[in-house]
Amino acid sequence: MGRFHSLLLEMMFFSDQANILISHIKMEHLVAGITGGAASTLILHPLDLVKIRFAVNDGLSSRPQYNGLFHAFKSILKDEGVRGLYRGVTPNVWGAGSAWGLYFLFYNSLKTWWQGGDTKMDLGPTRHMAIAAEAGLLTLMFTNPIWVVKTRLCLQYGSTTAPAAVGVPGPLAVVQYRGMVDALVKVWQMEGIRGLYRGFVPGMFGVSHGAIQFMTYEEMKTFYNKYRKQPIDTKLGTSEYLVFAAISKLIAAGSTYPYQVVRARLQDQHRVYSGVMDVIRQTWRGEKFKGFYKGLVPNLVRVVPATAITFVVYEHTSSYLKELRISF
């Protein structure tokens, strides 16, 4: 009887904690995140496509070869037209919108929970990083299949010949997917759940990317508001959000980029690797250290303004929706 009573108390405690966490969930963070992510993705998708093509270019497969960012754009426009620059844009918009929306929702819910509802409480860099890591892992679980599809669509080069053998360098594969839904269905049918979660392990390492970015962003906002002798949750101007978002993204991207190369190569339909360590071994053997940073330049050219746009849209949209909710 005593054991049952103890178990009942534990269940009630966790139920109360869950209810407290749910009470801190504010849907304006989801809506604002989706809006910011979708807006930045629509504007900058061609740079994302070029980054992915650089990242998977191992020098062995018969892929289009690009000498630089300008040459890549010129070649894609010539060979595939304007439409070629927007291959994979649908899952990218869905992926970026849902990822940013879920991330901001999870992050702010966990953050408010840690603060006990007191938005003026300074959590410090360690807690900010831990909260961002938790939010990133939860988001990845929901969005990984969309990123697999986006990568596959971005790597359809318009070739009409099939490879000589699976996993062996050769001519490019036939264009297999007609769009996002077709790709999701075919990956599920041919590769199962494992196919939809290719790149999940390096994606987990990539959680550190978001953790570093959000920790840096939050600490800069906190420091700036303290410097101005304002409460740490004081709303800033567009220029401040732009600068802080850009700096935090530069720091995070520069320190964690190799995982994106590993992830893209695992999701690439033109090559087959046995796992993360196989990608790392083959990349190091063929391309050394430089191979892990392929596509970094187009990535930075894309992600820095993309993040700045996303955060500015998010901050202003969430503030507007919060004021709207309070007014009602």
Results as ranks from 00 to 15, higher is better:
K111C: 06
K120D: 08
Y157M: 13
A132D: 10
F142R: 04
N92R: 00
T151D: 10
L110P: 05
R127M: 09
A165Q: 14
A135P: 06
W114G: 02
P125R: 02
G158M: 08
V89Y: 00
L110D: 03
T143M: 12
T161L: 10
G158D: 14
A165V: 10
P125Y: 01
S109K: 08
S98Y: 01
G158Y: 12
G158H: 12
L153I: 04
V168F: 15
P163G: 14
V149R: 03
T112V: 04
A130L: 15
M121Y: 09
P145I: 09
W114A: 10
L153K: 01
G116K: 08
T126E: 09
T143F: 08
P163L: 12
K120Q: 02
L155G: 07
S159K: 15
T119S: 03
F104A: 11
W113F: 15
I131Y: 04
T126K: 12
G136S: 14
A165K: 14
T160F: 13
D122L: 11
T90L: 03
L140D: 04
V148Y: 05
T119H: 02
G167A: 05
S109Y: 08
A133F: 15
R152G: 09
T161Y: 11
A162R: 12
G167H: 08
F142A: 14
E134R: 00
Y103W: 07
A135E: 04
V93R: 00
Y103F: 10
A165L: 13
H128D: 11
V89T: 03
G116L: 07
V149M: 04
P145T: 11
A133K: 09
V166K: 14
G116M: 05
A96S: 03
D118Q: 08
T161P: 07
G158F: 09
C154E: 12
T90G: 00
L137R: 10
A96Y: 00
L105H: 03
D122E: 14
F106S: 13
V89C: 01
A162P: 06
M129F: 15
V166R: 15
G167P: 06
W147K: 03
A133Y: 10
R127P: 01
P145F: 11
F104G: 01
T151H: 08
H128T: 05
D118E: 09
G117E: 00
L123Y: 03
L137T: 11
A133I: 10
C154N: 10
C154M: 14
T161N: 12
V166F: 10
P125F: 05
L138N: 09
T143G: 08
T112P: 00
W94T: 03
D122N: 15
